[in-house]
Structure formats: C-alpha cells, structure tokens
Nucleic acid binder design. Structure first.
Lengths: 337, 337
DNA sequence: TTGTACGCGTTATCAA
DNA sequence: TTGATAACGCGTACAA
C-alpha cells in the first residue's frame, strides 16, 4: 500500500500537490505536473487509505443498514426473501453512489447505536424498528435517518419513512375476496404491530364497508419459531373450516399454509381460498399460484437509499413516502355463491 | 463524540492512562484511577473512533464478503435464497467475534480488490469466483482469504476453500434415481463450471457405474435471465418426454421446472420424476415436496467465517474443508419398472 | 503509576 | 502553481 507521502517523495513534490491531483482540483495545479502525477498514480496503483481520509474529514462514506431482528421470529433474518431482496436494493444504490454499506443485524438498539457511532456512519437506514426504538436512536444519532416500514407516530415526526400503502393493499384484496362471494374471512399473522397492524386495519375496514362483522377470534395467530410453528399450524387448520377464505399477512405464511393444507387433504381453492401479501418468489412458484398483493421490495430498498442520499446532499425529502401496491390474481381464490 | 483527549483533560490526567484503562491494561494503572476513569467513560458513553484506531494500528476489524455476481444470472443476486442464508451465517459469526462485515457485490474483480485495499480489510471471504479470478485477487491481496465453493485447482493452492461434497451428493441422488428404476435421466443446469461441474461429474459417474451411457444432449441448459427463462423452459419441457427423470442442479431450478410442468399438465412424479440440490425453503414448501440433496448453507457461511477468524489469530487451517450432504427423499420421484 | 511525544495517511490552511 | 505544516483521534515507546 503506497501512500501519498511516498509518492510525493519519489516525484519530488509536496503531498499537497499529489492530493490536489487526486481530487481533481484542476485549477490548483498545472497540466504538466498533473499528467506526471496521474501517470505515476496509475503505475503504482495508488489506493487511498479510507481510515486516514475519514479521520481527516470527519466522515466515513459508510451508510449503515441496521436490521432489528425480532427475537421471536426466525433464527436467521436473511431467510426471509423480503429482507434479502431489500438489502440487495439498498446495497446496489449505495454502491452506485460511491458509498459503502455496513450491514448490522441485532435485536439490541443500544448495540446498533454504539456500532453506528464508532464507525461514524454518515447515514442510517433502519428496518424492523417498532414503537419507540426509533426515537431512542434519534436521540443519540444526529445524522440523516431513513426508516423502512416504520409506522410509529412518534417515529414519523423525526425522520422520513419509506413504506407501502399497506392498508389500501389489504383493503383491496379483502374486497376482492368479498366480491367473489366470501363473507367468512380470517386474518392470519404473528403480531399486531407495525405493518401487520396496517394490513389488519385494511382488512377490518373492507369487512366493515361490506357490512361484515369482525371478532377477535377471526385473527388466526401463527407462531413462527421453528419449535412452535407446527403446533400453531395445526390449530389453524382445525379452525379453517369456519372460514371460506384466509388472508395471510405475508406470502411466506400463505405458502406455508398452502403446503399444510395440501398435506391434510384440504384443497385450495376448492375447499378454502387463501391469499397473501408481497408477491415474492414463493407466491409465483407455488402451485396453485398464489393470489396476492404485489409490492416492489427492491424498489423499497432503492427508494430508502435514494432518499438518504438526497438528505446527505442537503436536500429536503418528504416525511412519508408510500409506494403503491396492486392486486395479483392467480389461482388460490374460488368464486362462491 | 467525545475523545480520549477530552476525557483526559476533564479528569486531569494523561491520554495514556485513559487509553490504558480502555484496553484493560490492569497492571499499568492503579485500581483507584481505573475506577474513576471507567465510571467517567460510562457516564459520557465513550465510543472509540474506529478510523483513528485503524489508522494507528494498521488494521480495520473489517472482514470483507465479496460476492462476484454472474452477469448472466439474476439481476439481484440476493434473490437467491442460497446467497442470503450464506450471508446470514457469515455475518453472525463475524459479529460475534467482534469484527464487522462489509458486503460487496460486483462482477468486476478489480473493483472488488480496490475496495478491499482502501478499507484495509483484515480478511476476505470470496464467493462466486471462477477459474483464475481467485489468483488475480491473491496477487494483490496478502492477507487471509477463504473461498466458498471455489474449485479451480489454481485457487486451491493459494487459500483454503469451504465447499461441499458436491460430487458425492450428486452421485447419491442420481444413484437413488437409478435404484428406483430410472435409466433415462437428464441433467439440468445453466453452466458447467465450479459447483455445477462437480455435480455434473457426480451425475455422470453414477450413470457410468450403472452402465448407463451419457451423451451431450442429456444436458438440459436453462437460461436464467428473466427475458430468456420462459423460452428455455419451454424447450426443456418439449424434451422432457425423452426422460423419466430430471436432476436439476439446484432446488430453485427444480421448483421452477415443477411449476412449469404443472402449468403444462405434466404430472410429477407420475409422468416424470424431478430432483434438486440444496434442500432450501422452496424445496420444503412446494407440493409435491421436492426430493433433493441437503446441504447446510448457514453452516457453510459459519465455517468460512470461523476459518478466516482462525487464520486471523495465526492458526493454520486445512486447505480444503468439505461439508457433507445427505439425501432427502420426499415426493417427486416415482418408482418405475 | 503516570505523562510526553510521535506516528499512522490524509486533507486543509496559509504562506511562498 | 506549489510547499510547509497543522490537524483529525488513537496507540504506544519511552521517559519521568
């Protein structure tokens, strides 16, 4: 690793001049020396030392992507196709802008914050924060923050959120179910916070607008931990006969349920209709193919990164960005009369 | 961000003392001042500036995970469940060891190397390198490198590889197919390099050992790019009737094929048997559930990271680590006579 | 046991 | 147009 100092010595000039050439401060250096330096740089394959640069400039060119893992969910957050596609979108955008991404997965907000300050991260993208996590973060960290899928009212005051019209998406698909003659529709999820709450609200609203009543027992709770999922799935299967359709809060759950139904000889959509939310690979590859709500997950990641980049360059961004959804009708809903 | 200097000033002592306390050099500092400093550190929530530390120590505490994207495959590498689970395993291991992970996705080896040297990355995990990529890397970069699933003979000379007994796994499942009476077995993949070559070799060997001949046309080539995949899948479907079974090089392809067969009214396993490789979520959730070869992808990531960590602490590691596979028999193979 | 002084590689300020 | 020099925050050899 050759340094500027060394280069300057070998070229018999000052580090300033070399540095100026590197940064293309054309006005400050004669075309002649510029050429000489540039050639030399190429020859020795000069690569700047980012630590030194960061120290001198008090910045880092790093954007942190902090994923807060829910302890009760997967052992491996990246198992979820949603998460990985999201990361892909963020990474690509950040890289193209000349920044670097540091991925940090943790269920401990404090740990995330310590990490972010040691590295002097220039900006932060937060995913999976619930309730007041975000506020705690923003008290410590005074640089730009963009959230993904965060719905806490407090959080929204402090930073911009990139989300989805979850409520509308849920409303649309439940409404579609109703238009196909369904009136006994259950909702399946593992919690009632954040995104899941928004989708639950859309579901309830659609029922209400159609004059269908909702009661607590229409909420089918799945427990995703590997040692519990089988049991909770069995419970759900038993209660399935009370309904003509089930709206699952995600494709992953919908497809999981579909498989379980198939194993038990329950035929979809003949015996019961099932719909999901996300439109990911699972929904597309499964047979029968899943009727679901489409969202562009990669775009979500790209948008979040773009928004942060804008803030980094001093631009204002809206407080709330909502990406659209649309219905994807495939083969898991039957018209009933 | 408070600095050591500032702390020393406020406490009326030298930076050395503060630094010594931070690094737990117990012998060098009296219990009294130690306590005083420790309390103060906690109070002001001191966080070291990593850039400065790295500069002073000429290290970075960063481990780079470089994924070489194949331009002809997905638009988004992280779409592949294999890749994302792998990343999860690496990240977790690295984080638990007090290191940080920097993810870098690129199809340009030179770009990866520039990135790695600017950040003065302490060690490197490489995935997706084919042929001589690895050698080019190792010429520039003199710190520990661990490869994942790299089979180039040249590469193996230079650094340790964490792989799988791909050949054996392929041999086992093709052998299973043969034991079920199949003799017309096709191989489906998108290339014949690296891992795919190893699996192809296992497949051919199993055929050979059973006295079944192989010809070029038994290689069914899939083209995974989104604008080509439909066409190539159609071609494959047409040729499917020549075979009683198809061994797909990955679960992703196997499940993709399964869906396509279903759409065309070809019944699996009644009309044709299909097997995959990986045993990922797709294989488990699809119905009929896929008969496949299991590999522990997360363990692969964990092992790669562990191996690198060992090298970082000066230990020797074997040149080649091969993780085992095992057969998972589910519902996509029919016994024929 | 504690303090001083310097080096790490870069950028920035100011003078020449 | 160029060069000397200070500063960024930390670790550490060496002196006290």
């Amino acid at each position: 690793m050759i340094t500027i100092k060394e280069i300057a010595k070998q070229l018999n000039m000052s580090t300033t001049t070399v540095s100026n050439v590197i940064h293309g401060k054309a006005g400050e250096v004669s075309g002649d020396t510029r050429k000489k330096v540039e050639e030399f740089l190429k020859k020795v394959d000069y690569v700047p030392n980012i630590s030194a640069r960061n120290l001198a400039q008090n910045q880092s060119k790093i954007i942190g992507l902090a994923l807060k893992a829910r302890a009760d969910k997967y052992e491996n957050l990246l198992m979820d196709p949603f998460v990985s596609v999201l990361i892909g979108g963020v990474e690509e955008t950040i890289r193209n802008a000349g920044y670097f991404m540091m991925l940090y997965i943790s269920s401990d907000t404090g740990e995330i914050m310590r990490h972010v300050s040691t590295w002097n991260v220039d900006g932060l993208i937060l995913f999976g924060m619930l309730d007041d996590d975000g506020i705690r973060v923003s008290e410590k960290y005074k640089k730009p923050i963009v959230c993904i899928d965060t719905y806490s009212i407090e959080g929204l005051k402090h930073f911009t959120n990139v989300g989805l019209d979850d409520e509308q998406g849920a409303y649309d698909i439940v409404n579609y179910l109703i238009s196909q003659g369904h009136r006994k529709i259950a909702f399946l999820s593992d919690n009632t916070k954040g995104v899941d709450l928004a989708r639950l609200t859309g579901y309830k609203q659609a029922l209400k607008d159609a004059g269908i009543s909702y009661s607590e027992k229409d909420f089918l709770k799945i427990r995703p931990k590997s040692d519990e999922i089988d049991k909770s799935l069995d419970e759900i299967c038993k209660r399935a006969s009370d309904y003509t359709a089930i709206f699952c809060v995600s494709d992953l759950y919908a497809v999981t349920l579909l498989s379980r139904f198939e194993d038990r000889g329950i035929s979809v959509p003949d015996d019961i209709s099932v719909v999901g939310f996300d439109d990911n690979m699972l929904a597309q590859l499964h047979r029968p193919a899943l009727t679901t709500v489409h969202q562009d997950v990669k775009l979500k990641g790209v948008t979040a990164a773009d928004t942060l980049l804008k803030q980094l360059s001093g631009k204002k961004t809206p407080n709330q960005i909502k990406l659209p959804t649309h219905l994807v009708i495939r083969d898991t809903v039957r018209r009933i009369d």
